[in-house]
Amino acid sequence: MSKVSVLVVDDASFIRDLIKNCLRNYFPGIRIEDAVNGRKAQTLLTRESFDLVLCDWEMPEMSGLELLSWCREQDQLKTLPFIMVTSRGDKENVIQAIQAGVSDFVSKPFTNEQLLSKVKKAFTKAGLLDSVMASAPTRMNSAFGNDSLNALTGGKAQVVTPAPAAPAPRPAPVPAPALTSRGQGQLRLPSGTQVCVIKALSLKEALLVVRRGEVLPQVLDSAVLDLEQGESAEVARLNGYLHAIVAYEPKPDSAWLQLTFRFVDQDADKMNYLSRLIAHGTAQKHFVPGA
């Protein structure tokens, strides 16, 4: 029996690697190909057969929406499961993709659980889940949990629920640090969304400050930085990952964290937009331009 095949399309190699590693860890028997944009994916789809496409929206040469529309015009690809992996979650964009024939959405940034849930749903609808799961090990440390305790105890481990602890007193509000801030944005992480202060911005990365929460961000977490600029409230959705995390204050219980957010998009339109943001911010002292 031929392997179940998946095509991953994204102009950012970091995102492609995240998706491929996640799928290979959970579905080790599948075959995965990738493409850097819609045009390359179009070429692959004309000469090879795939069971699922996971595709970014904003890419150079041919966008994900254009690739989706082309697929639905091809007799052999009209019913191909097509999942859009995108930071575009606005209502009008969702409606546009649904009208074009999208099968499902995965919002950036995503956790392994969110991605796998959508992929399993697509495989189930296509009648492929049993086939792809048959090649997986009977026991594995999947993204849905760690079964090491069950493996050691033969599946007989009992879960002990501790008595609820008394609620801790609510700490007093922590004042914001004295920042030489140059703008604000919204950082979307797998653990949630946080307002951030932008200390510096360049074409490669942004230096951000966020309030420390109950769940700490992790180095190499994928994320989306939303920046709003201009009277028309134009929003740039910049995909990337956390390259470094340090305490903003010189103490272990610092209430603020400084994050280095590296961009991964190769989309020329996004880079042009980012250049305009930097130039506009420099003129109005809204951002500090980076190197």
Rank of each mutant, 00 (worst) to 15 (best):
Q184K: 05
N141P: 12
Q184P: 04
G145N: 03
V209N: 00
P173E: 12
L207M: 10
L216C: 13
A157G: 08
P167S: 04
R212D: 09
V197L: 04
F144H: 02
L152F: 08
L152S: 06
P162C: 00
S181P: 04
P177K: 01
L187D: 03
P175Y: 08
L189Y: 04
G145T: 00
V195I: 01
Q158P: 04
L187A: 01
E214W: 09
R170C: 05
A200H: 03
P169F: 13
S191L: 10
V197Y: 04
G154K: 07
G155M: 02
T161Q: 09
V174N: 06
T153W: 07
A200V: 01
R212K: 15
L207A: 09
G185F: 05
K199N: 03
L189R: 06
P171Y: 07
L179N: 05
P177H: 10
F144C: 02
R170D: 08
V215T: 10
L189I: 08
V159M: 07
T153M: 12
K156I: 02
V174I: 13
V219S: 08
R182L: 12
G183N: 09
L208F: 04
A168R: 14
T193K: 02
A200T: 08
L189N: 09
V195F: 02
N150M: 10
T193D: 06
A176N: 10
Q158D: 06
S148N: 12
P173N: 05
P164D: 14
A143S: 14
L152W: 04
N150E: 08
Q194K: 13
R212C: 11
I198V: 15
E205V: 00
Q184D: 08
S202N: 05
Q186L: 09
V215I: 15
S142T: 14
A200G: 08
V209S: 02
M140A: 15
Q184F: 06
G145Y: 11
I198F: 06
A176C: 07
R170Q: 10
A172C: 15
V209G: 03
V160Y: 09
Q186I: 05
A176K: 07
A206Y: 09
V159R: 03
R188T: 07
Q186H: 06
A178F: 08
A172D: 15
A206V: 10
V197W: 00
G145C: 00
E205F: 10
V159E: 03
A151Y: 12
Q194Y: 11
V174L: 08
A200K: 14
K204S: 04
L208H: 03
R212V: 03
Q194L: 14
P171V: 07
R212S: 12
L187Q: 02
V160R: 11
K199Y: 04
A176Q: 13
A163T: 14
K199T: 07
V160M: 13
N141D: 14
D147L: 05
L179K: 06
E214D: 15
V174E: 14
L208N: 01
L179G: 10
